[in-house]
Structures are given as C-alpha cells and as structure tokens.
Amino acid sequence: MPGTGYGAPPPPNYLVWAILSAVLCCTPLGIVSIVFAAQVNGKWMAGDAQGAFTASRRARTWAIAAAVVGLIFVPIAFLSGIFDASSGSM
C-alpha cells in the first residue's frame, strides 16, 4: 500500500463527494458512501491502514454509484413525467 509508513498522510476519505452524491444524486447510495467516508480517518488514527484504504475505496465506489444512478434516473424521471412541473406538484 502506498504511503503507509510513519507520518504518511491518510487515504482520501471522499466525504465531500459522498455528501454531494447523497444530496444531488441518489440519497440511499450517498448515505452508504458517507458512512464509509466517515470511517477512513478513524481507522487511520487507530493504526488500521488496511481498513482505512478499504473504507476509502468503498466510499469512492458508493459515491460513483450514487452519481451514476442519479444521472440515469433524474433525466428518465423528467422525461417520463414523474415530475410534472405544469401542475405544481411532484
């Protein structure tokens, strides 16, 4: 694993991406990403480098999945009329 020696920086936690994917794309998948992102720094500080890298990778994966689902579902929802802007209700 790169950067696991003394004084090495922790792996990226992707917390910003997780929050954005939860708010803007797909909330359930984004929440899973937030949970993994929140684990990264704690595992790193506890000396669990492998766990920190695993949580980082999972946070990134779930954030990407949330973004992809959001980018696929939202246009389909608008095109199919789930969100009817003319009636003023969703």
Rank of each mutant, 00 (worst) to 15 (best):
R60S: 06
T27Q: 01
I31Y: 05
W44E: 12
G30K: 03
A22C: 09
A66I: 01
G70D: 05
P28A: 08
P2Q: 06
T54W: 08
Y14P: 15
I76K: 05
S89E: 08
G88P: 00
D48M: 07
M1G: 04
L20W: 04
M45L: 10
A37D: 06
R57G: 13
N41P: 04
G30H: 01
L15M: 11
I72A: 11
N13L: 06
M90V: 11
P2D: 08
M90N: 10
A65E: 01
M1E: 13
W17V: 01
I64H: 08
A18Y: 00
R58E: 11
S87Y: 03
L29W: 10
I76F: 09
A77E: 15
C26V: 04
T27K: 05
A65Y: 01
S87W: 02
S87Q: 02
T27N: 06
I19R: 09
G70T: 07
P75H: 03
I76G: 12
W62D: 12
S87N: 04
A46N: 13
P2C: 04
A59V: 02
Q39L: 13
P10N: 07
I19Y: 00
R60W: 14
L71M: 05
W44G: 05
L71R: 04
A67K: 06
T61K: 07
M90G: 11
V69D: 03
P28W: 11
V16P: 10
W62G: 07
F53N: 14
G7S: 01
R60Y: 15
G3T: 06
I76Q: 10
G81W: 02
M45V: 09
M45R: 10
F83K: 07
F83D: 12
V23W: 15
P28L: 11
F78Y: 13
V23M: 08
P10H: 04
V68I: 12
F53H: 14
P2Y: 10
I19H: 03
V23D: 09
L20A: 14
V40A: 01
A8F: 01
I19F: 03
A55I: 02
A46I: 00
A18I: 02
M90Y: 07
P2N: 03
V68G: 08
G47Y: 04
T54S: 09
V16Y: 11
G47K: 01
T54Q: 08
G51V: 05
R57L: 14
F36E: 02
A49T: 11
L15C: 09
S86R: 13
A85M: 13
I76N: 11
T27I: 01
P2W: 10
Y14W: 13
S21W: 09
L79G: 15
G70A: 09
V35T: 01
R58A: 05
G51I: 08
N13Y: 13
A22K: 06
G7L: 01
I34A: 03
A65V: 00
I82F: 00
V68T: 12
R57E: 13
V16L: 14
A85R: 08
N41F: 03
S56P: 15
T61R: 14
V16D: 12
W62A: 06
A38D: 07
P75W: 00
A22I: 02
S56Q: 07
A66C: 10
Y6D: 06
V32T: 05
Y6S: 07
W44Y: 11
G88T: 03
M45I: 03
K43D: 12
A77M: 15
V32L: 00
A66E: 09
M45T: 10
G42H: 10
A59W: 15
P75A: 08
